[in-house]
Design a protein around this nucleic acid. Structure first.
Lengths: 152, 152
DNA sequence: AGGAACTTCAGCACTTTTCCCCACTTTCCA
DNA sequence: TGGAAAGTGGGGAAAAGTGCTGAAGTTCCT
């Protein structure tokens, strides 16, 4: 599982350093190449390829006679890219993905369970500003909806 | 289980000594690295990674197509960090976490069952000042609400 | 078709931050 | 009261991150 938050930047050539901790983790516990895809809420999801493969399998198993499923599949795969780390541990983020995610120069990189999320710094801040509720309150809402609670 | 209360301080580099008793306990009964996260009531929760892993598994199993679930996951992981003890038994608390928990220099470290809590000294004192009821009264309240009692 | 210029990519090197080790002070216990 | 262990502070080395330079491939123009 990926944990922690990092503030990095993207150079003129669209390259971004993967935080060293994630780098090691990927090399020790996962397979390369990495898969970069446009995720929810206008940020990028970065997966090791073995993790991504499971998601693709699920995508494949969805009912493709359903037009909403087809649309979902196409929209996901449209914005999915394979990336390799260079010797300095950097990846290139394509102009398309950068644009889709509104990424300028400064990014926030967050370890989020089985994936790494890459956010434009400003977008990240406004996301969390909008959703600034206490953890207690969020937990309560989920609990009210019948979503299983978590005991800390 | 962690027990006891300690008063330590944080140096200019954001380092804090783990009380020796907890240190030994972690090394004997648990796995490193440690996981530090913003908990309830503005204090930090410190878990051995094996304990934390169970929480992460629950988080992972939630439905990530639901935007409120994503928000909850992100809010938890946003303020979650992996930390290693140095040879002196200290951990580094990141500026982000220090800010979120309002930690200045003096901290109170409390063993709380399966976790260790780290409080800013002032916050700790005002928390207990506000909630200064007798134990008998608290127990009565819980009992009245139908929350299972504890037999001492 | 050859050459030049531009674009693209990768490696190198510098700077900043982080980590690690050593030494000092304080507290606790015998 | 002395010794040991715990906690604190600072300095140096290593690594992480980022900008820069150089090489290679491609395209366009003559």
């Amino acid at each position: 599982m990926f944990r922690g938050i990092f503030h990095n930047s993207i150079d003129d050539k669209g390259r971004m350093s993967i935080p060293a901790r994630f780098r090691d983790q990927i090399q020790n516990n996962h397979t390369t190449p990495l898969v970069l895809t446009l995720g929810f809420d206008q940020c990028l999801f970065l997966y090791p390829s073995d993790t991504w493969q499971k998601i693709e399998e699920k995508l494949s198993s969805m009912d493709s006679l359903n037009s909403e499923v087809r649309q979902f599949q196409r929209t996901v795969m449209k914005a999915t890219d394979e990336v390799e780390m260079d010797q300095q541990g950097r990846i290139v983020i394509s102009p398309v993905l950068r644009k889709e995610a509104g990424i300028a120069k400064n990014v926030v990189i967050v370890g989020l369970l089985n994936r790494v999320e890459i956010w434009d710094k400003q977008k990240y801040e406004s996301y969390h500003a909008q959703t600034s509720q206490t953890l207690e309150l969020m937990g309560q809402k989920l609990s009210d909806k019948g979503i299983q609670d978590i005991n800390f």
